[in-house]
Nucleic acid binder design. Structure first.
Length: 193
DNA sequence: GTACTGATACTCT
DNA sequence: GAGTATCAGTACT
């Protein structure tokens, strides 16, 4: 078992994002453990990216992105949803990777309970869904993800990486910064290949 | 199968 | 006061 170290996240965001595919997102609760294989991410860059929250400068909300790498940035959106990001780049360089979907591996019964859904395909195939399945909320903002209880575990990746433009943005939607595992049924939307 | 719409609360101007 | 890195439900084809 190897937790991805701070050094891994300190690299350029565009490089970290595709390398997160196939890795295991783990959240250890007191009574149970939840885990899912990352199959879809989006990169948010510190430079030249109008879609990045930090594009307009540092604010109280996005200040985590300016902090050291390897921390969680949990953002609240559209009144209902929390989105989980991992901070990348060196300190004071605001980059992050949005984790958009995972494939359930461990603790599926608990994810079903958290989501109030039985269909395994519908548990974690979207950024708001996976945080609900994992029980991640704003209280999990700015947590270190290089140690328990919330971390990403290294795994061998087999598969093909696809690339596309990002989803749901009004700015910077043309940049090809979305990475996903081709033909994986847990990738959000229909663009799985 | 696709298209539209409302829910909802937090952040920054 | 506007905008938002979404989802689920409904109404259609």
């Amino acid at each position: 078992m190897m937790i991805l170290p701070k050094k891994f996240y300190a690299q350029p965001t565009q490089r970290v994002a595709p390398e997160l595919l196939g890795q295991l997102l783990v959240f250890e609760h007191p009574q149970y453990v939840l885990a899912g294989k990352i199959v879809e991410v989006e990169a948010y860059l510190p430079e030249g990216d109008p879609g990045c929250h930090a594009a307009g400068g540092k604010t109280p909300r996005n200040s985590v992105m300016f902090g050291p790498p390897g921390f969680s940035y949990v953002y609240f959106c559209y009144g209902n949803h929390f989105l989980l990001n991992v901070v990348t780049e060196k300190e004071n360089v605001p980059g992050a990777v949005l984790i958009r979907s995972v494939e359930p591996i461990d603790g599926i019964e608990w994810m079903q309970r958290n989501r109030r859904k039985q269909d395994i395909r519908q548990l974690t195939n979207g950024p708001g869904k996976l945080t609900q399945a994992f029980g991640i909320t704003k209280v999990h903002n700015q947590m270190s993800m290089v140690r328990k209880p919330l971390y990403i575990q290294k795994r061998d990746f087999t598969g093909t990486i696809g690339r596309s433009s990002r989803i749901g943005l009004s700015q910077g939607s043309k940049l090809p910064l979305r990475f996903f595992v081709k033909n994986n049924p847990f990738v959000s939307e229909k663009r799985t290949s």
